[in-house]
Design a protein around this nucleic acid. Sequence first.
DNA 1: CTGAAAGCGCTAACAA
DNA 2: TTGTTAGCGCTTTCAG
Lengths: 347, 347
Amino acid sequence: MSDMESGRPGRGVRLEDVAQLAGVSMKTVSNVVRDYPHVSAKTREKVQAAIDELGYRPNLTARRLATGRTGMLALAIPELDQPYFAELSRHIGEEATRRGYRIIIEQTLNDIEAERAVIRDREEGLVDGVIFQPVRVDTMEIARLRPDTPVVLLGEGARPLSADHVMIDNVAAARGGIDYLLAQGRTRIAFFGMVRRDPTQSTHLRLLGYQEALLAAGAVSDPKLVVETDGFGVDDGVAALTAALDAGVQFDAVFCRDDLFAMAALRVLDRAGLRVPEDVAVLGWDDTALARYSTPALSSIAPDKAAIARTALDLLEDRMGGFDGVGRHRIVPHTIAERGTTAPSGR
Amino acid sequence: MSDMESGRPGRGVRLEDVAQLAGVSMKTVSNVVRDYPHVSAKTREKVQAAIDELGYRPNLTARRLATGRTGMLALAIPELDQPYFAELSRHIGEEATRRGYRIIIEQTLNDIEAERAVIRDREEGLVDGVIFQPVRVDTMEIARLRPDTPVVLLGEGARPLSADHVMIDNVAAARGGIDYLLAQGRTRIAFFGMVRRDPTQSTHLRLLGYQEALLAAGAVSDPKLVVETDGFGVDDGVAALTAALDAGVQFDAVFCRDDLFAMAALRVLDRAGLRVPEDVAVLGWDDTALARYSTPALSSIAPDKAAIARTALDLLEDRMGGFDGVGRHRIVPHTIAERGTTAPSGR
DNA sequence: CTGAAAGCGCTAACAA
DNA sequence: TTGTTAGCGCTTTCAG
């Protein structure tokens, strides 16, 4: 009660200070701090009192040096503000917290050097493991530069035999999307977002699924229905799709590489006076906030982001626990989030 | 050249090993590693060769323990996947990288206990400073639980005298938004997104600016034009605005608390058959991806997020550098991103 | 300009 | 159950 000194900062209070005040050894204090089970009740109490009085808190850095564990994971992604990555990060952050890890974010900003730094050593000794979605570096490079830190890869970009990997089945998901559109009676389905010089593998896989499904259904497969763009931006998409429309390309559904292109499609169709979904259905990919909040609300291929997070952490914890087998590849489920842009008729 | 062993992992290579191989002391190696200027060229060369041969990389944790600096900053925000925070995080991440810091993300998920943990000690000894946007804890609590780690606060939630603070002038920004709408000839402007039991201060400030501007302009100020909602979700918004419309409330512009509510407004207006911006103008707040990608593209109050990041880091670096004055409050600029939803007439 | 040695604060064998 | 004592790997006075 006469704790006049209560405002004293904890700075500088060490384990040893606590030990001294409590009249025990450092080891005992350490045991109490870490909830080591074999400590007598009275000792624990005494120590706890000293801890409280001094306002002691363990120095995480020192603990790390002593244990070798950092309790941190790095999440290396292109851009934090791209809706898909923002949502993925949220899930990974939550899952990590649940398991007692902290997340340090590494934005590669689509820069190949930044990606190389990630696989090389940027995180050396700083984190226990890294979750990495590469977009520029290729499989071989990742395999070669294998770091000492456990890594799990996300996305379709690279799949070296040496690293674990989590993704959804892009081909199957695309096929499912097309089948879904076909089942609604759409006959001329465009593939929108074939980005020229796309460094990623994703687009190709999605296009592949698109073609497979069309072929399997004996539906129209016309090269003109594959709309190429000059980049990943909405503007690129708007320009490309507008050009296609102007060139007289006809379609009653647009299967988009991702939600961003779907936003572009919505804008172009609106300008062209085409109604969605009555005249043209639109299906996005990633099921981001963009899809949920647009008008009309966008239907979208929905990767199970929580499952991606969970699986990635599972694999990583195996590795951190010493598992040293060959790279494992996990396919995570996806669904189709059905919303207004694909409803057979108005909302 | 006969480096048969080149695949050997760097794991376990210590400063001492390098020193031994190079035939110098640890101190010298340390100097080379850290680019200490006063090292003779030949020594440096010799040491560098040893470093390369051994594949040595400094152990960050050990360095930290020795220096006391972690080189890391914590960014504590409610949710990483809320567009505004995702974008803010991107900027802060970039700025931090530029200055040589890494960012660890702490999602508070709007949980008051998580926020308390942040200001208390969750990051003790783990980071050099924290950037924190509180939404639940109040000013006094933050002031009381002042941690030993430098903190800069973001947002309007709390402004204790003891901590630095960065925000945009919400009242002025709201006033500016209303003036802008007024200048376009709008006469009945609704305020949309007066969230019931909103724990944050932002909404009130924005409403205040709205009222001030209306009053100053001698424009219509009708309590019915303030649309209350039950929560922050788009669904809450849709329900509330639909109800207002059904109740016969008339307006020719909607000033939204944030972009999410603007998305809700767009949806409701579309359903009601009202054209945007011809019949009703819509102005959002935050200038997120939602605004840029919607159709029509949303005009929005745009806080200068890069400036927020820069300013926050500036203040934090001052504190980390030893500055110990009273809390400083920085106002960062904002603009109005003019897009389709407020254009006087169609696109 | 370089070397020797004492920490940074904590954990973990090994004893007691 | 608790104490003693080395480290963990790096930085940093203080000499030389």
